[in-house]
């Protein structure tokens, strides 16, 4: 029993022999260790140079992110800003639905933090810029038929159908002409699938309207729609498939 206690004590001591706790999700990683994490999990798509040209990249249609420009689609920060570490952690943790970017939840916080530190070494922008503060997402109003109806009006007013189509199937008139910032053809998302690439909660969808998706033709609507309209639009999108979580409050969000 005494031996067992010694072993248990030693183990607890080792587990607690931790460096100072990082500030938040994704922060405080070690880029040297992150390079190994990157080579283990990321390199086949994002490439050795972080240019999105890994050995698998040419076989897939949604091209892997080129990290060298410091341009990221999924952010909580305003259009044009770098993402926060928590944003990057969310993308890595939850993956991007409908693409070959899987959920890396299972690899653990430790690995994710280190690889985020390494990803930042690909662009000098991380040395000169800082992420702007995350946008403030107002409390979600209740999901209702009236809200859905107003959301449809916002969809039309904002000309969403030009790319996403009248029925939001991703087949609008411009759908086949779109390219991302790197010149790769890009297809507007079919919003009826029941999943949104960056997350299915109401706040996830709201965030996309306000921040836009940097590097893609999806703009920020922060100057053209009000927060109320943005929530109505969220509810309209959520009405398109029974799979969307509706009125999914922030407390329940992943």
């Amino acid at each position: 029993m005494k031996r067992l206690s010694i072993v248990a004590s030693a183990f607890v001591a080792l587990a607690l022999a931790a460096p100072a706790r990082a500030q938040g999700p994704g922060s405080g990683g070690d880029p040297v260790k992150g390079k190994v994490v990157y080579e283990r999990y990321c390199l086949s798509c994002h490439g050795e140079l972080g240019n999105g040209a890994g050995e698998f990249a040419e076989w897939i249609t949604t091209k892997p992110r080129d990290y060298r420009q410091g341009t990221f689609k999924w952010r909580s920060t305003p259009s044009g800003s770098l993402p926060t570490d928590a944003d990057l952690d969310k993308t890595i943790r939850d993956g991007i639905y409908g693409t070959f970017m899987p959920t890396w939840y299972a690899i653990g916080e430790h690995n994710r933090r280190d690889v985020i530190a390494y990803i930042k070494t690909f662009s000098a922008r991380w040395k000169t810029d800082k992420p702007q503060p995350s946008i403030v997402i107002p409390a979600e109003p209740p999901y209702s038929d009236a809200s859905v109806k107003r959301g449809r009006a916002v969809y039309e007013k904002s000309n969403c159908a030009q790319c996403h189509g009248q029925d939001a199937l991703g087949d609008g008139p411009s759908a086949h002409e779109l390219k991302d910032d790197w010149g790769n053809p890009i297809v507007p998302y079919d919003l009826t699938q029941g999943h949104i690439k960056c997350g299915d909660t109401g706040s996830d969808i709201y965030r996309v309207f306000i921040t836009g998706l940097n590097g893609t033709p999806m703009p920020s609507f922060t100057d053209s729609i009000s927060p109320e309209e943005a929530w109505d639009l969220v509810h309209y999108i959520q009405s398109l498939s029974a799979l969307y979580p509706k009125n999914y409050g922030p407390a329940a969000a992943k």
């Binding site: 183990f11 080792l14 607690l16 931790a18 460096p19 653990g108 430790h110």
Partner: peptide
């Protein structure tokens, strides 16, 4: 259990 940092990364 996974640990965010430290000498033991998982148990």
């Amino acid at each position: 259990w996974t640990f965010g940092s430290g000498a033991v990364s998982a148990l």
